[in-house]
Design a protein around this nucleic acid. Structure first.
Lengths: 159, 159
DNA sequence: TCTCTATTTGAAATCATTACAGATTGGATT
DNA sequence: AATCCAATCTGTAATGATTTCAAATAGAGA
């Protein structure tokens, strides 16, 4: 059986990126459980295994990944950029309560890219916002759940 | 003929908002030409007519408007929140070159709201990104055109 | 081992957004 | 018209994600 680490390195190489240790660890994390992490999440999560990992590295590495098409930055969370380790186009649901981002498998009539009204469309994002199934059922919020920018959250609470 | 100012005040009253001078001016601006402005745009634009207008007022007023459903905040621009003065749901195109946001009139198969996968959907946003018709034709960029967060821009250029 | 270049790191700078407290306004009451 | 009260508005400071930048480190090749 192959490790996720090796799997990540193979993906890096396949995308024309030199597979360094940090890059493999980061890619592994973006694609792992708890999908759609923010830089802050990745930093907190990875610091346990790689105590020297800097946020600067995370920022520059994720930019590299995005440029190479390995990950997709999502601007659905008003507080911070979230990253999607699955590059294949699909839509997202953002829960304004627990702040989780869930994949939405819906075949939108509107094609993936091409031309619309004469504009060259490179990316199509379907963003659905509301309360996720778990929060509707009174689930325990998995995040600080206090962001702002209107109904959605952003930044810190009033503490 | 009725002025835009009066029109704005009527809208405010209709939404249950006390129509103060500042609020009327701000609503007028969000709905005016150059659609989908950021707080920064509004501040620069309105400072000519209302020299005392503070950014704090803009932030709190737009939050009020959004809460009352008069405007919609858009998170399509990685650099800052943009506001849509047209509340009726429709989709948007973001030009990564000139940073303009253009309305897209497309009837998406996916309904406006309701339930998806058990989640309660309050908002649906269709975000298309790419190069607008004008920029494709080599148009002069209408904005700084230097933002970042990967292909899209954010913050300042490298100067 | 030595060099050279790419990568990683830490610290400082930038800037949109938020928090807060004081100043102002407008209406109701006297 | 003077007074009071509550809602608005304003300026300043704090917060925190993101960027910038230069120095430290690691790796490939001679």
């Amino acid at each position: 059986m192959i490790s996720n680490r090796d799997e990540s390195k193979r993906r890096l190489t396949a995308s024309g990126i030199k597979p360094t240790f940090q890059r493999a660890v980061i890619l592994e994390a973006v694609r792992g459980k708890n999908g759609h992490p923010a830089i802050r999440d990745l930093h907190a999560r990875l610091l346990r295994d790689v105590p020297t990992l800097s946020k600067t590295t995370l920022y520059s590495t994720l930019e590299l990944f995005a440029r190479k098409g390995l990950v997709k930055p999502l601007f659905i969370d008003p507080a911070e950029v979230r990253y999607d380790g699955v590059a294949e186009p699909h839509h997202h649901f953002y829960c304004t309560a627990c702040r989780r981002i869930l994949d939405i498998d819906i075949a939108c009539s509107t094609g993936r890219a091409g031309r619309i009204h004469g504009h060259q469309v490179d990316e199509v994002h379907g963003y659905f916002k509301g309360l996720c199934r778990d929060c509707l059922a009174g689930g325990r919020l998995s995040r600080a759940a206090n962001v702002s920018i209107h109904n959605s959250p952003r930044r810190k609470p009033h503490a």
